[in-house]
């Protein structure tokens, strides 16, 4: 690695070598060992911005948000069970709707608004998401 590439990497990834491309870290470390002053000058400049970026702390999720997310898992699981049950025991669209209604209705209370909003968001998600999922998830059965 020459000093120009070292500067490019520093300008892109900052001063912390752990953020640099894995394949170039060893060469960067060698350059630092071989040219400590030149490399330190480059890294010092990047480190100033890194330090500023690190003053921004990530938000902490509120208990309300955490609970809402966990509730959405329970609702989704209940609905999956209802769907599975209806497929097993009551074939046909009307029967499926009936089974889903009975089970889901018994478990899901007061959640219609939030769920609808979630479904809208899903519908709006990227079109290539289905292919990503199917590629990544081997052995998908349904």
């Amino acid at each position: 690695m020459d000093i120009q590439r070292f500067e490019e990497l520093s300008a892109a990834y900052g001063a912390d070598l752990r953020r640099w491309p894995e394949a170039e870290r060893e060469a960067a470390a060698s350059l630092i060992a071989g040219a400590p002053e030149a490399s330190a000058t480059v890294l010092r400049e990047a480190d100033g911005l890194d330090a500023l970026l690190d003053t921004s702390r990530p938000p902490v999720p509120s208990a309300f948000l955490r609970e809402a997310v966990i509730r959405s898992a329970r609702r989704s699981h209940a609905r999956s069970l209802a769907d599975a049950w209806s497929r097993l025991w009551l074939p046909g669209a009307a029967a499926a709707a009936c089974a889903a209604g009975i089970l889901a209705g018994a478990i899901l209370v007061g959640t219609v608004g939030a769920e609808t909003r979630g479904e809208e968001a899903i519908a709006a998600a990227a079109p290539d998401e289905a292919s990503i999922i199917s590629t990544w998830l081997e052995g998908r059965s349904t």
Binding site: L65, A68, V69, S72, A73, S76, E115, G118, A121
Partner: peptide
């Protein structure tokens, strides 16, 4: 963040 998790539960 909430919507991401709705998607997660579905998958």
């Amino acid at each position: 963040a909430q919507e991401v998790f709705v998607r997660v539960w579905r998958q």
